[in-house]
């Protein structure tokens, strides 16, 4: 069964069709890149999948079940996690609490356990803290666990956002420009990191990225959007030589150098 099936998805803001007839199927364990010029509608697709926007038309099925129209928190609880293009951490909280906060729907004590700090509360807090620390360790952030998220370096904030997304125990991870603003060495690390978490947590990944080095390297398939529509699909090699894609990025008459 495909992890994600999007059929004829459209989203209009007034007269502007931000996403138009978008269809995409993701199979278990794939890494697919979503690329396109600025304003092509890539982030809108993410916002539609995660429930921040309601689709104007079309369907989104996750693991065979319709999810379009559900509120974001329910979609998250079903197993879709994301990061944001403009990092959205819980900035005033510690690194550890950024991760622990999103364990919330899977906490196994109730309100009164919390108020009275029962043994069940203590045991569950210990379990959650351990799991959060394991995630931080996997992303090499464990030594910063007690720092404020706002005080982390940019690259660390990007990794913390991924750690937080993984804490929701997703099957599908949506990464919105994870390597934005990074230098080539940092991009290489990010590529390794994404491969590592994909294997370790058995993820399917959909990735928006502008760094061509990264998508060419990482993705098995690419989907190219422009003006809200898919203009090309294929392997990185096919896309690299596709004249329609070159035109979208560089204008008419461009050729591969």
């Amino acid at each position: 069964m495909p992890v994600l099936e999007i059929e004829n998805l459209s989203k209009a803001f007034g007269g502007l069709k931000a996403v138009n007839n978008f269809s995409l199927t993701l199979e278990e364990g794939e890494i697919v890149g979503l690329i396109g010029p600025n304003g092509a509608g890539k982030t809108t697709v993410f916002n539609l999948i995660t429930g921040l926007y309601k689709p104007t038309s079309g369907t989104i099925r996750f693991l065979g079940e319709e999810i379009s129209g559900l509120p974001p928190f329910k979609i998250s609880q079903r197993g879709i996690a994301r990061t944001f293009q403009n990092i959205r951490l819980f900035k005033g909280n510690t690194v550890l609490d950024n991760v622990r906060a999103v364990f919330h729907p899977r906490i196994k004590y109730n309100f009164f356990d919390a108020l009275l700090r029962t043994p069940r509360f203590t045991a569950e807090e210990l379990r959650v803290t351990q799991k959060a620390m394991e995630l931080l360790e996997a992303l090499n952030l464990d030594k910063r666990a007690n720092e404020k998220a706002a005080n982390l370096a940019y690259g660390d904030q990007r990794r913390l956002e991924i750690a937080r997304a993984l804490a929701t125990q997703p099957r599908l991870l949506l990464l919105d420009e994870p390597a934005a603003g990074m230098n080539p060495a940092e991009v290489r690390h990010m590529v390794q990191l994404i491969r590592f978490i994909k294997e370790k947590y058995k993820l399917t990944i959909l990735l928006i990225e502008h760094q061509m080095g990264m998508v060419m390297n990482l993705c098995e398939r690419l989907v190219v959007m422009d003006f809200g529509q898919i203009i090309a699909k294929g392997t990185p090699l096919e896309i690299r030589n596709n004249p329609v894609v070159l035109e979208a990025y560089l204008g008419k008459g461009a050729t591969v150098a």
Binding site: T50, G51, L52, P71, P72, F73, S76, Q77, A81, R82, F84, R88, L89, F90, K91, G92, N93, D97, R100, A101, V102, F103, H104, P105, I107, Y109, F111, A114, L115, F121, E125, V128, R164, A165, T168
Partner: peptide, 22 residues
């Protein structure tokens, strides 16, 4: 507790909290 952390995450970033399952 986890309830306090859920509340604080709303203060810090309501959209992120929502998308993260709260």
């Amino acid at each position: 507790s986890t309830y306090g952390r859920a509340c604080i995450s709303i203060r810090e970033d309501e959209i992120a909290a929502d998308v993260m399952g709260i």
